[in-house]
Amino acid sequence: MSSPDINEDDIALVTEILRSGQLSIGPYLEKFEALIADYVGARHAVAVANGTAGLHLCMRLAGVDDGGEVITSPFSFVASANCILYERGKPVFVDIDEESLNIDTRLVEAAITARTRAILPIHVFGQPADMDRLNAIATRHSVTVVEDACEALGSEYKGRKVGTFGQAAVFAFYPNKQMTTGEGGVVVTDDPEWAKALRSLRNQGRAEMGGWLTHDRLGFNYRLDEMSAGLGVSQLSRVESLLGQRSAVAARYHEALKRIPGVRPIMPCGGTTRMSWFVYVVRLDDGLPREDIAQHMAAQGIPTRNYFPPIHLQPFYRRDYGYRPGQFPIAERVSATTLALPFHGRLNDQDIERVCDGLARAINAVAPACAGAAV
């Protein structure tokens, strides 16, 4: 489904760090943070163990507590809602816009209550959410905005990079992301007090100037190691090239899919002036049986994924919190028709043709009346 783009410079730098003997809390962590802050356009960056850790820390700083509510989308990876539960808060799901697949800003204001602590938009698949409307709503109601930008490094909303619209934003660098640190994430913010608190919270609650065994607050071990930070430094040195390669692969997919009826790709829309391609997702017409198509593609050796199952219909959300089908119909309808195809920046034309031919054959096999695709 994906493949990290690792070159010899990446390997050499990580090897150099291993030989240095300083494997944690060293110079590459600081360098990585400075480079990320500069790239995004934020004043501060605090690297953490993964994107989920970053989201968790932001929920704590946003004041989420027992019963505190956070308005967010049900169409996302489950971590975006789990981070609210970690603080004993309540995810308040709002249905999505069918074109952008992001939270529907027309529904957000009605979901705000006296218990609302934050709005957590997800820039799903690298498509920016409508941040102007969300920030206007948040300002009217004095609630915090945290951007889940874990899938969106380099994306731009109205010409401005995501990660600079909220009180804080979180990026992630798992191996399927636009760039990777193996595991790892970063929180960016313009607020020096948030940055100070984030550095303490990720490091077992130690103060920046305190002793190693002095803990000012309840914290976590959410540190990012030096090897991961060094890999991030190396990857950032060519991040625009990495993004460009992924964009070129997406463009080749767009062209190849034009000949397959019943299939349409997710495309930039709304205020998106640059989409940073995290995965390549298509939507199938309602009459096409997605699971059967996926099985036929798997039989051809072509993996796919149903990005994303709605969070509220995950088994433990239904069991523990009483969610049920039908509560967020657009997210559920979209989820039933989305299919992620193999995607990374080094796919060549032959790879893309093989995937698209396999998709056309699968559609012909399961729904020949809907097909007629050229194979």
Results as ranks from 00 to 15, higher is better:
residue 3 S to Q: 15
residue 5 D to C: 07
residue 7 N to Q: 10
residue 9 D to L: 03
residue 11 I to Q: 15
residue 11 I to M: 13
residue 15 T to I: 00
residue 21 G to K: 08
residue 30 E to I: 14
residue 35 L to Y: 01
residue 38 D to P: 02
residue 51 G to N: 01
residue 60 R to T: 06
residue 62 A to D: 07
residue 68 G to H: 05
residue 68 G to S: 09
residue 70 V to Y: 03
residue 76 S to G: 07
residue 77 F to A: 14
residue 78 V to K: 12
residue 91 P to K: 10
residue 95 D to E: 09
residue 97 D to H: 14
residue 97 D to G: 07
residue 101 L to K: 01
residue 101 L to F: 13
residue 103 I to M: 14
residue 105 T to Y: 09
residue 113 T to L: 03
residue 114 A to Y: 01
residue 117 R to Y: 00
residue 118 A to K: 02
residue 120 L to M: 14
residue 127 Q to M: 15
residue 131 M to E: 01
residue 134 L to R: 08
residue 146 V to Q: 07
residue 152 A to W: 04
residue 152 A to H: 06
residue 153 L to T: 02
residue 157 Y to R: 05
residue 159 G to L: 12
residue 161 K to H: 13
residue 162 V to W: 04
residue 167 Q to C: 07
residue 170 V to K: 07
residue 178 Q to P: 02
residue 182 G to H: 00
residue 183 E to G: 00
residue 188 V to D: 10
residue 192 P to I: 01
residue 204 Q to D: 13
residue 204 Q to F: 15
residue 207 A to G: 15
residue 214 T to C: 04
residue 221 N to V: 05
residue 223 R to L: 14
residue 227 M to P: 10
residue 235 Q to C: 04
residue 238 R to I: 03
residue 241 S to C: 00
residue 251 A to S: 12
residue 256 A to F: 05
residue 261 P to Y: 09
residue 274 R to G: 01
residue 275 M to R: 10
residue 283 R to I: 03
residue 284 L to K: 06
residue 286 D to M: 06
residue 291 E to Y: 06
residue 294 A to V: 02
residue 295 Q to H: 09
residue 299 A to D: 14
residue 301 G to L: 05
residue 303 P to I: 06
residue 305 R to C: 03
residue 311 I to N: 09
residue 312 H to C: 01
residue 321 Y to E: 10
residue 323 Y to M: 08
residue 323 Y to H: 15
residue 324 R to E: 15
residue 332 E to Y: 14
residue 336 A to T: 03
residue 343 F to L: 10
residue 352 I to T: 11
residue 352 I to R: 10
residue 356 C to M: 11
residue 357 D to K: 12
residue 359 L to Y: 08
residue 364 N to E: 13
residue 368 P to H: 06
residue 371 A to R: 04
